[in-house]
Design a protein around this nucleic acid. Sequence first.
DNA 1: GGTGTAATTTAGATCGTTCCAAATTTCAAG
DNA 2: CTTGAAATTTGGAACGATCTAAATTACACC
Lengths: 348, 348
Amino acid sequence: MSKGRVTVIDIANAAGVSKSTVSLVLQGSPLVNEATRAKVNAVIRDLGYVYNRAAANLRQTASSRIVGIVVNDLTNSFFAELAVGVDQVVQSAGYVQFLANTGESLTRQAEVIASMREHGISGLIISPARGTQAADLKPLVASGIPVVVVVRQIAGAKVSSLISDNRDGARAAVAHLARLGHARIAFLGGFPDTAVFEERLAGYREGLAEAGLALAEELEIGSAPSRAGGVDAVQRALALAEPPTAALCFNDAVAFGVCDGLRMKRREPGVDFAVVGFDDVIEAKSAVPALTTVSVDPQGMGGRAAQLLLKQINAGKPEPEALAGAVRLVVRESCGAGRNRQAWRSAV
Amino acid sequence: MSKGRVTVIDIANAAGVSKSTVSLVLQGSPLVNEATRAKVNAVIRDLGYVYNRAAANLRQTASSRIVGIVVNDLTNSFFAELAVGVDQVVQSAGYVQFLANTGESLTRQAEVIASMREHGISGLIISPARGTQAADLKPLVASGIPVVVVVRQIAGAKVSSLISDNRDGARAAVAHLARLGHARIAFLGGFPDTAVFEERLAGYREGLAEAGLALAEELEIGSAPSRAGGVDAVQRALALAEPPTAALCFNDAVAFGVCDGLRMKRREPGVDFAVVGFDDVIEAKSAVPALTTVSVDPQGMGGRAAQLLLKQINAGKPEPEALAGAVRLVVRESCGAGRNRQAWRSAV
DNA sequence: GGTGTAATTTAGATCGTTCCAAATTTCAAG
DNA sequence: CTTGAAATTTGGAACGATCTAAATTACACC
């Protein structure tokens, strides 16, 4: 008799109750008699019933239990880990996540946000593509869907955010390098037109100033925020008339590239040159040399972002909240912290 | 007037047509008059209407335009890239993807599959957690939802699959190492209870046999399939009475770990010891030394899997299809291919 | 047995869309 | 003018659940 999928009505008929009762059972309502509940549940199992959330959602004012997460570069392990962190808390809260990768394309980003909206997400976590405007999120926000912006700030957007304290982290890293005896410390990698870059660069400059070191324009070398970019940047740095002896890198990917580039020039990172990364991706710990880096704990950050989002979803009316991601310097080997400080004078 | 969200009825009223007409416009039907279409579209824009796919789907027999993707370890860049590949083709086909990470947990896997099913996915791509049984996918398959299994085979499951030719890739890698003059070639890393491991190991053994080299039990050293596992495995290898001079690694993560481990013992990968990876993740190219590896092109594989899935979704009745992912050996630096073959005799 | 209250159950409207069948409009030809 | 076919539009049922308000059943107590 049953054509196609099994519905509440099929269950109701088979169990000899009304569809309303079945619905109550599905929602775990205390109103229904234990015996009835057991019978209905048995039938549900027998018929292999699958709950149709879309249908339920149509009637309910409650949330869809879907959140969206949009990242700008999933091939970067920082974002992959961020996604894992989100996934973890979102899953245990009984939600599923739409995940989309924009690859820094604003067009794609607009498309996926629109698509997710049509599918009725009850919240969105987004690490925006470069050049994202507050207006791009406007319609979402206006319709009362909570949005949490992570990693990169969006100026003027009335949404919650979770941005790590880039400036402070960079300052701490530079202070550490200065304490180690370095006088020429470079800032390597990253695209100059992003907020994250500016914050880290600002922290770098502050750190130099606090250590009484001079700023040197030529020691600030941008590049792609990738491993290849790091190779490139360090090579330009080493070609300088007065090359640096240490570098704070835009992120860990760049830092790994810098290590690669150093080896190409027969210099050993952590021995002949100090390198400090930023992010603390999972490989940082096990790399050789283990990377000294400013830990932003991507997975933890994803988790916190997800918690914030869920809180706002449950709160009904989302009150924008700006959280700062704590950062801390993790000293490992690549900065050569254990070594004789005399050695740094002119390793060149 | 308008309470809550804007619906087709609001549009219809504002445009002075019936909801049926609005529906036709939304579907781009050729039945509707150009002037009417324009008017309706204008109103849609003005009122900021958002299409409700869930509602549409309830009535339509058509697909939900949602696919699920389940991976066992998103922190591994191989899977992150796989997801990116899927995302790309899925996005351009106008679908969105649920993405879930199981972290090898069968419980989580079962939960997310059930959840995705309730949300009405029209297809699923899965890289199954270790120990997944054909029965775990049974209900999904029985309800006619196309499933594509990637990376790891599931014995006895009546679903499509896209598995790379692990055996052949491993054989080619060993052949290459043997041609370079290596006589003691190890197989490092990976968990012995997975199909992938078995296939790669089988290929390794075949390669040795074809090169006329003896099998040596002690040269097959398992470990976690991670960077840390690689460090561990190579250390055990080097501690052998008669240590290997080359290694085929279970995957690239292990290979990077092996390079790290070699450096800890003051051996330079690609100079004192040849290492070959498996997968060709994105960093393989830019690492130092650049990693010689068996390329399975994760992103391309994700793309192919997605195409296969979409094909099956459109086909109505899915006909299981087993595709083999092509692999090819990419010779770079870590195998020391450019070097004098005499050097390998006893680098120890 | 009658009564009132608490415990269960239920019919029917509803969510936002699509689809069907039928109604209406348009317009060229007789 | 009719007429009839083509073009366009439309009302109402349906999808699979929830929700409201009302109906039914159960039970304790006089």
